[in-house]
Amino acid sequence: MYAITHDAPGFATAIAEHRPHATIVDVRLPPTYRDEGIHARRRHPGLPVLVLSQYVEHSYAGELISDGRGGIGYLLKDRVSRVSEFTDALQRVAAGATVMDPEVIGQLLTRHTRDPIASLTPREREVLALMAEGQDNPTIATRLVITDNAVHKHIGNIFTKLGLSPTDSGHRRVLAVLTYLSHHRPTPTSTEHGPTHR
């Protein structure tokens, strides 16, 4: 038995009613076209989900990989036309395996072998270092002797350069700090001895 739905509410209802052995879902569904496909996995941990996407969305693919529960897949939509590959992926996801499109893996590996912090300007690195200390925006503005608006702009640039999706707005600050800490050991910044003027 299977059910076909066309939007996020219908998808959620079908999951609740049918408790499927596996689901196939677009990473974005109407009406919001955000991260409904990933959200289903968050709401139903362990639910076998094969997510389809038009292109590689790093934050979503990374979240699925880090889930650690198995029963997840992330395929680019052009794989659907390769029927044998698609059905094999679906069967493996239903069996609890993790299935990632080769292009997704390639891009994630490329992304994580470089230092993403290197793309930031010196000022953006200062802002991120203070974020890693747990400072809020007004404190960062005071420490660096810049306006709150300037801090907001720098943080927006940091999110963009680190490839953090706007749909992760509630978590982007944490993810940015984790990225910083994973590539740099915490060291005293120049701001600890007074503000840096530029």
Score class of each variant (00 low, 15 high):
Arg123Met: 11
Pro9Asp: 06
Arg42Ser: 06
Val145Gln: 13
Gln91Cys: 14
His44Val: 11
Ala3Gln: 12
Ile72Cys: 13
Ala94Ser: 14
Val49Tyr: 00
Ala150Trp: 05
Gly96Leu: 06
Val177Ser: 04
Asp7Gln: 03
Asp35His: 03
Ala118Pro: 04
Pro122Phe: 07
Thr139Lys: 13
Val174Ala: 14
Asp148Pro: 04
His112Ala: 11
His152Ser: 14
His193Met: 09
Thr196Gln: 14
Gly96Val: 05
Lys153His: 13
Glu103Cys: 02
Gly156His: 13
Glu103Ala: 06
Asp136Lys: 11
Ala141Trp: 05
Arg43Gln: 10
Lys153Pro: 01
Glu85Asn: 12
Arg123Phe: 13
Thr113Val: 15
Gly194Met: 07
Ile146Cys: 04
Thr196Asp: 10
Arg19Glu: 13
Thr167Ile: 02
Ala22Arg: 00
Val51Leu: 14
Gly46Met: 04
Ser84Ala: 13
Ser182Trp: 10
Ser169Asp: 11
Glu124Asp: 10
Ser53Leu: 02
Met1Thr: 15
Met100His: 04
Phe159Pro: 07
Tyr60Ile: 13
Arg114Asn: 11
Ile105Tyr: 00
Gly194Val: 00
Val51Ser: 05
Arg82Leu: 06
Ile105Gly: 01
Arg34Gly: 09
Thr113Gln: 08
Val151Thr: 04
Leu109Lys: 09
Arg114Asp: 12
Thr98Gln: 06
Val174Asp: 12
Asn149Ile: 01
Val56Cys: 09
Ile72Gln: 10
Val80Met: 07
Ala129His: 12
Ala95Glu: 12
Ala40Asp: 00
Tyr2Glu: 02
Arg185Tyr: 09
Thr113Trp: 02
Leu76Asp: 09
Arg34Glu: 14
Ile24His: 02
Gly134Arg: 13
Ile117Lys: 10
His197Ser: 10
Thr23Arg: 00
Ala8Phe: 10
Arg92Gln: 14
Thr167Pro: 01
Ile38Tyr: 03
Tyr74Ile: 05
Thr32Gln: 03
Asn157Met: 07
Glu85Gly: 05
Pro102Arg: 08
Leu29Phe: 01
Thr113Asn: 05
His58Trp: 11
Gly71Val: 14
Gly68Lys: 12
Gly68Asn: 07
Glu133Ser: 06
Leu162Lys: 10
Arg173Leu: 08
Ile15Asn: 02
His197Asp: 07
Thr98Arg: 03
Leu162Asp: 03
Pro45Cys: 05
Arg42Thr: 10
Val99Ile: 13
Asn157Ile: 08
Ala141Met: 03
Phe86Gln: 05
Ile105Arg: 07
Leu162Glu: 03
Ile158Val: 15
Leu128Pro: 02
Glu103Phe: 02
His197Glu: 10
Lys77Pro: 03
Asp26Ser: 09
Leu52Arg: 02
Arg172Asp: 07
Leu64Met: 12
Gly10Ser: 10
Met1Val: 15
Ser190His: 14
Leu47Gly: 04
Glu36Asp: 03
Arg69His: 09
Ser66Pro: 01
Leu90Gln: 05
Gly62Phe: 03
Ser84Phe: 06
His171Glu: 13
Asp115Leu: 12
Glu63Phe: 03
Ala132Lys: 02
Thr32Leu: 02
Leu175Arg: 15
Thr142Asp: 11
Pro186Ala: 06
Pro45Trp: 05
Gly170Thr: 00
Met1Cys: 10
Leu162Ala: 09
Pro48Val: 07
